[in-house]
Amino acid sequence: MTTSNTTANGDDQAQSVALTINGLAVNAHEGMSLVEAAWHGGVPQVTSVGCLEGVCGSCRIMLRRGKEVTVGLACQTFVENGVEVVFLPPASAPLHHYEVSDFKDGWDIQARFQDIFPEASRCRHCHGCDNACPKGITVENGVALAAAGRFREAGEAFFECVMCELCDAACPELIAPAHVGLFSRRVTAHFHLRPPNLIHRLEELRKERMENPPKDRRKKNNED
């Protein structure tokens, strides 16, 4: 057992890897993730870290390898000799605003989508979003599906999205693909997920409540 999750690889045989994180020289052990390396090297201000397993999308980085710069998640990227890493600040506030509860009708959802995400149909196919996605999502294709009103398929394309919003930063047309994907998933569930077993149980419970009205004070207040 160890006192933290992160020192498991601290044995002496592991080779030393030299890299730069946020401008500081760091010596790390082979096999360390960049988050582990940052902590190991005492790099300050590394607080954009969350789940450490690649699903929360917080630890966004830019990484320079030779003349090539890529973006990604630090907890899913491993140390390499000579690379330069910069942890990115959190994503900016969203540019597109909607509330699912505002949608009363699924029939005009395409029009609503075009109102909310007008940029989605202006994709210039630079593939920046595809390159930026740490999950290998075919972002550009997902956006095209959404722009064509095929929200179920678009949402499916974004299934592995972890909301790191790197595609948003990578999009020159400010389409906000991550949010297009989530919009697609949400309207699909909101308008089309109607499971009989759940509906049946809800109906049973409703009838039960009619027969035995609740004595819970809070619920009464809400009904006022």
Partner: peptide
């Protein structure tokens, strides 16, 4: 705003610099 989007280094880089 002017970065074309092809290179993540440029688009993501300038977007973050600007922000």
């Amino acid at each position: 705003h002017s970065s074309c989007g092809q290179c993540n280094s440029c688009k993501v880089g300038t977007a973050n610099m600007s922000r």
